[in-house]
Amino acid sequence: MPSWTKGRVALVGDAGYCASPAAGMGGSLAIIGATALADSFEKHKGNHASAFEAYNKDLRPFINEVQTNAIDTLDKLLPGTEEEVRLRNQNGFGHF
């Protein structure tokens, strides 16, 4: 999602940046996002436009990293080819 805010509405947690069940961070992302949004409001003295801009910019790198890691985990758990399945099974699920 290119922006987690529009007008005077902001999305946090799964509504804005659900990584996937593979990330195992649903609750954590919601808390981290809510804290980042609250911090932005405090820093920008309640100016929602400035706070929303900072929220979108400052939290984005962290969310991108979590989402990328979730995709990598899913790729390892759910391989796309038979050869990848064999390798995964030889190495065990916990060895990726």
Rank of each mutant, 00 (worst) to 15 (best):
A23G: 15
A10N: 06
G16H: 06
N89K: 12
K57G: 03
K57P: 00
C18Q: 09
V12M: 03
I32F: 08
H48R: 13
L74Q: 06
I32A: 13
E65D: 12
S50R: 12
F93Y: 10
V85Q: 07
L78H: 03
G80A: 14
A23H: 06
S3P: 00
F93L: 14
Y55T: 05
L74E: 08
G16F: 01
Q67V: 12
H95Y: 07
A19T: 10
P61L: 04
A30C: 15
L59P: 05
L29G: 02
D14Y: 06
R8D: 14
M25P: 00
N91I: 05
R60L: 13
E65V: 00
A51T: 05
D14S: 12
F62R: 09
H95G: 00
T35P: 00
A30P: 06
E82W: 04
A54S: 08
S40Q: 12
A70W: 01
A49N: 07
G24F: 11
K43F: 05
E83Q: 09
D39F: 00
N69W: 03
D58W: 02
G46D: 09
L74H: 07
G7F: 14
E42A: 14
G16S: 07
P21Q: 10
R8Q: 14
P79C: 07
V12Y: 01
G33H: 10
K43E: 13
I32C: 07
L87V: 11
F52H: 01
G27C: 13
S40Y: 03
V9D: 12
M1N: 11
A22H: 07
V9N: 09
M25I: 01
D72C: 04
S50F: 08
Q67R: 08
N64D: 13
A23M: 07
N89E: 15
L37W: 09
F96C: 02
D75I: 00
A15C: 15
P61C: 03
N47S: 11
L74N: 07
N64K: 13
C18G: 11
G16Y: 04
T5G: 06
G26H: 06
T68Q: 14
R86D: 12
D58P: 03
H48S: 13
E83W: 04
N56L: 03
A34E: 08
N91Y: 10
F62K: 03
G33I: 06
G27S: 12
P2S: 14
K43Q: 14
E53K: 08
E42M: 10
H48V: 15
K43W: 04
R8F: 09
Y17F: 15
